[in-house]
Every structure is written in structure tokens, then in C-alpha cells.
Write a protein that binds this DNA or RNA. Structure first.
Length: 509
RNA sequence: GCGCCCGUUGUCUAGGGGCUAUGAUGGAUCCCUGCCACGGAUCCGGCCCGGGUUCGAGUCCCGGCGGGCGCACCA
């Protein structure tokens, strides 16, 4: 545990030092917890992750939309967030300790039936059952509501809230989407954008934020299509690392690799469409560059599920800082959301299913970007006796190529500048550095995870070649200038390796 | 929100009433340097914020903000 914490501190220290993230923000005013700034490298990394996420969903036939981050109060009344996205809090009148009223009652009187009680009824219940403050046995005060949404105002007098999830704002445009999809379901849409949660006590740095970037994909689907989902056939033989709730209940946390079709047959997933979504969530995380060994899919225990959810699986990433970190939820939201918005807006949000008019169901994949971002840095961290480096997969590394003259001599700096411009033009994120010793420059790039460094030396001037160095092995290979950009692009895409390029080349560089 | 501990250059850190706040690392400029933190010169940068005690406060006290751990919370 202590070593985990030390590790987290080391990683966070590196992140602050090198410009991945800073905070809590605003630092010069002392900071406000749960708010962080992304530095240049963190923003590059986040952009790379988002672009992988985006192309994964696009490949799965999802279409991207963007909605406002603030919506008027009525939306959140309809969605249930105003009522439901709250904690009923009560305080001890003597010692001031605050408690979740419902949890407290359940704890003290396990048989009490308090599901869905109003705040006043909860307070009544506390009196009735004689529940006292567990800390000092003092009298408990009235039950108050603590809403986790950030409130704001539109114009002079319209109450509004920052969205606590992007999903709801996607549902609000369902009619428009239906037209866009030519009145045919399934319709698959996703959104990447900011969401806000007024966490009571954010902890664990960038893992629990009050403002964060959410990715939420919605599959609008008819009930009959959930069990008969054609795309399932494309992925049925894929293997997934699963931790079903039944295994967890038996006290084990052992992951079993299942073929998707076997997991379905054995009842771990209820429908083909839901299984397909769980697989998609997993593949999105693979596309971000997480290794299979550090990923698992964990099913929620029935007791931890949200009340509306028929089933819930999470994608979790293993870290050295915080153990397994929940990064993504896959939810069957049924037709709760569309049904509520139909009711509150009086708009018809149903579709034709044969002769029937039905409100479609929604399957959702939801995650924040900052968690995978941190997990990636955590997973990438490596050190040995002589250096610290980040082993990012090349395609997500913030800076992809470093370009150096062997020494800061004009005859080497000039060509380096030309190469830098050329590599930059190819779309790769590139950094030119001609100061200090060559070793120091390599180490600087190692520490921010740059996978490849190009060095211009005196042989370069003679035979028009440069060396390319591999971050992880520190090995180098000599490449002819005309081939350089093409090879770098292949290296970054993982379609070539330094080791393979070295084969058949003379040992000297 | 509660309890315990903590807050010193960009990062890591010494110092717990007394002259100009310690060291490492880093960064900048220059010299050196024909491939992995070489060396030399010069320079840059810090006591979280606000009150109080004191002749004098990184240092002691109070409050705020922030962090760690535990509790609670994480729809």
C-alpha cells in the first residue's frame, strides 16, 4: 500500500515536472480540489486518446455529436438528476458529523424499508426508529439534499445546471437523430465533451474531478434487436478477460478469458447487443494502447448496480498507483431516459416497431478521458539505475519524434532544422533540441516518452543518412534521408520496429 | 464533511524562534563535447494564504486553502 502511494507520488511528480498536468487549479490562488490543468504534454496525450476513441466508435458505425454543457432545469427534472442525483444528508446537532441519511438508517436498522422516501419521510423515519449519531449519540438534524450538479443561471432568471453527464444531452436530440438516421433503428451516436460533478470530497488527484471530459456512446435500439444483433457475429469469437459477479461473490478476483459467444451462452451477458457493447468498450481501450494484461471487465454485483440497470460491466485498468481503476461503464439504460423526456417535453419520442409505437431502449458505453490518461502514464512509467522513461505505445506518445544535431555546430544544426521541418510536415509531433550533450537530450525525451529520436552526425553530411534511436532499447539504426519520414511514420504506427530495421545492417552506426 | 498527519525554488529535500534559508536535480547563456544525465564559467528560481504571539516567525498559535491516510461519498 505504502509503495503504491510512493509510486503514485513519483508519477504525479513527473507529471508536474514535465508538463502533463498541474493542480489543483488555479494553483496561484491556492487551488480548488477536483480541478486540474493539462499542460502541453497532457493535452497532446489526451488528444491522441480522444482521436483513437473517436476512430474506434466511427469504425463501429457511431456518429459523433456535440451538445451544450449547460441545460435548463426542466431537463434535469425530467432526467431524474435533480431528484435522484442527490445525497440525502443529515448532521448531528451535537458534534456536527454529516451522514448519508439513507445509509445511516439502513446501517442502524437493517430491516427498515426506506427505498424512495422523501427527505421529510427520511427525517421522520430517523425520529421513529430513534437513530442517533453513531459518533456521539447526539440528536440528528433535518435531512437535507446535497445535489451533485453545479447550478448556474441563464439570462436573468432561468435556473440551469451544468450537465453531470453528456448522455442526457444526447437524448434531448433524439427526434433530430431519428430524422438523420432516416427513421431507422438502431441509431448509434456518441459524444465527447465536458461534464461536471460537484463531488463532496474529490481525492486521488486527476482520477476524481469536478470537471472532466466524458465519452458517452448511445445505441438506440429496439428490444427485439437486442437479442438478434447481427453485428454480434463479427465479434463472437473474440476473447475477453471477464470477472463475472458470481466469481466475485465466491470471494475470487480471478479473471477468466471467455469467448464472447461462450460468455453469452453461459449467461454472463443477457443479450447479443449488450455483449457487443461490452466488447466494443474493451476494444476502445485496446485501441488506446492498453495492454491486454492490464485490462479486465468486471461485472457489478447486484448490490452495486444503479436501480434502473438490468446489468452493468466496467472496464478496469490495472495501475501501480491505485490498483485496479474503474475506467468505463457499459449500461443497459432501458427506455427510462427517453420515456421520461417524452413525458416531460410532451414530444413523441417513440418509433414504429411493426404496428406498435414504442420508446426504444438505450445501451450506453460511458467513460471519462482523464482516467485512462492517468492510467497510461502510470502504466508507461519505467526506471532503472540510469534513467527514467515512459514507455508509451508510439502512436499515443505526446511527442513522437525528437530531432537533434549530434552537437550544436552550425553544419549539423542546419540539416537538423530541415529534417525537423520535413518530419513536422508529415503530421508527426516533433521536437528539435540542439542544446547540451546528446545524452542529456536523449534522456529528456525518454522522460516524456518520445519513442524515436533522429540524430544528424558528420556521417550524415557525407552519405545523406541519419540515425534513429529507440527509446526502450536505446538501439540505433542508420536510415537514408529520403526514406526517413516514411520509416518514422511506420515506426509510429507500429508497422515497423527498430529491431527489424537493424537486421542486415552493419553493427556500427 | 469529520478525525489524524502534512504544506520550503519547476521537481525532490535540510532546517522546528535569531545575521544573506540547505543541498540535489532542473532551466538559461557561453565554453567544451564525433552518440547516451562528462566537465568548466556565469546566471535563474522557494518558505501555500491571512491574522495573532514576539524585539524578531518557514519555525509557535488561530483560521482559510490544498495534500495524504482513515471514515463517509463516488447517481
Amino acid at each position: 500500500m505504502t509503495s503504491e502511494r510512493d509510486f503514485a507520488e513519483t508519477v504525479v511528480g513527473l507529471c508536474k515536472k514535465r508538463g502533463f498536468f498541474w493542480g489543483p487549479s488555479p494553483e496561484i490562488y491556492g487551488g480548488s480540489s477536483g480541478l486540474y490543468d493539462l499542460g502541453p504534454l497532457g493535452k497532446l496525450l489526451k488528444n491522441r486518446l480522444e482521436s483513437e476513441i473517436r476512430s474506434s466508435f466511427v469504425r463501429a458505425n457511431f456518429w459523433e455529436v456535440e451538445c451544450p454543457t449547460v441545460s435548463p432545469e426542466i431537463v434535469w427534472k425530467a432526467s431524474g438528476h435533480l431528484e435522484g442525483f442527490v445525497d440525502p444528508i443529515t448532521r448531528c446537532t451535537k458534534c456536527g458529523q454529516a451522514y448519508r441519511a439513507d445509509n445511516l438508517i439502513e446501517e442502524e436498522v437493517p430491516d427498515a424499508d426506506i427505498k424512495g422516501l422523501s427527505l421529510d419521510r427520511l427525517a421522520e423515519k430517523i425520529r421513529e426508529l430513534g437513530v442517533k449519531c453513531p459518533a456521539c449519540k447526539g440528536q440528528l438534524g433535518p435531512v437535507e439534499r446535497f445535489n451533485l450538479m453545479l447550478k448556474t443561471r441563464l439570462g436573468l432568471d432561468q435556473d440551469a445546471y451544468m450537465r453531470p453527464e453528456t448522455a442526457t444531452t444526447t437524448y434531448l436530440i433524439f427526434k433530430r437523430l431519428l430524422t438523420f438516421f432516416r427513421d431507422k433503428l438502431p441509431a448509434a451516436v456518441f459524444q465527447i465533451g465536458k461534464a461536471y460533478r460537484n463531488e463532496i470530497s474529490p481525492r486521488q488527484g486527476i482520477l476524481r474531478l469536478r470537471e472532466f471530459t466524458q465519452v458517452e456512446a448511445q445505441l438506440f435500439i429496439l428490444h427485439k434487436d437486442e437479442t438478434d444483433w447481427r453485428a454480434f457475429d463479427d465479434i463472437k469469437s473474440y476473447e475477453l478477460p471477464l470477472l463475472p459477479y458470481k466469481i466475485q461473490e465466491s470471494g475470487s478476483h480471478e479473471v477468466t478469458t471467455f469467448r464472447v459467444s461462450d460468455a453469452l451462452r453461459q449467461g454472463h451477458f443477457k443479450t447479443k447487443a449488450y455483449a457487443w457493447c461490452v466488447n466494443l468498450a474493451y476494444q476502445v481501450f485496446r485501441s488506446m494502447g492498453f495492454r491486454p494484461e492490464s485490462l479486465r471487465l468486471r461485472q457489478h454485483l447486484p448490490t452495486e448496480r444503479a436501480h434502473y440497470a438490468a446489468d452493468a460491466w466496467d472496464v478496469e485498468v490495472q495501475t501501480k498507483s491505485f490498483g485496479w481503476v474503474e475506467c468505463c461503464g457499459v449500461h443497459d439504460r432501458g427506455n427510462y431516459d427517453l420515456g421520461r423526456h417524452q413525458q416531460y417535453s410532451k414530444e413523441n419520442l417513440s418509433v414504429k416497431d411493426g404496428n406498435e409505437s414504442v420508446v426504444p431502449n438505450v445501451l450506453e458505453i460511458a467513460f471519462g478521458v482523464e482516467r485512462p490518461l492517468f492510467c497510461h502514464i502510470d502504466n508507461a512509467y519505467a526506471e532503472d539505475s540510469e534513467r527514467v522513461w515512459l514507455r508509451f505505445p508510439p502512436h499515443i506518445a505526446p511527442v513522437q519524434v525528437g530531432v537533434f544535431p549530434l552537437m550544436g555546430k552550425p553544419e549539423l544544426v542546419g540539416p537538423s532544422q530541415e529534417i525537423y521541418d520535413e518530419v513536422l510536415d508529415s503530421g508527426l509531433t516533433t521536437y528539435l533540441d540542439s542544446t547540451g550533450s546528446i545524452g542529456r537530450r536523449y534522456r529528456r525525451q525518454d522522460e516524456i516518452g518520445t519513442p524515436f529520436c533522429v540524430t544528424v552526425d558528420y556521417d550524415s553530411l557525407r552519405d545523406n543518412t541519419v540515425t534513429v534511436r529507440d527509446r526502450d532499447t536505446m538501439e540505433q539504426v542508420r536510415i537514408s534521408r529520403p526514406e526517413l519520414v516514411g520509416i518514422l511514420l511506420k515506426l509510429v504506427k507500429g508497422k515497423a520496429t527498430i529491431a527489424a530495421l537493424k537486421e542486415g545492417q552493419p553493427a556500427t552506426i
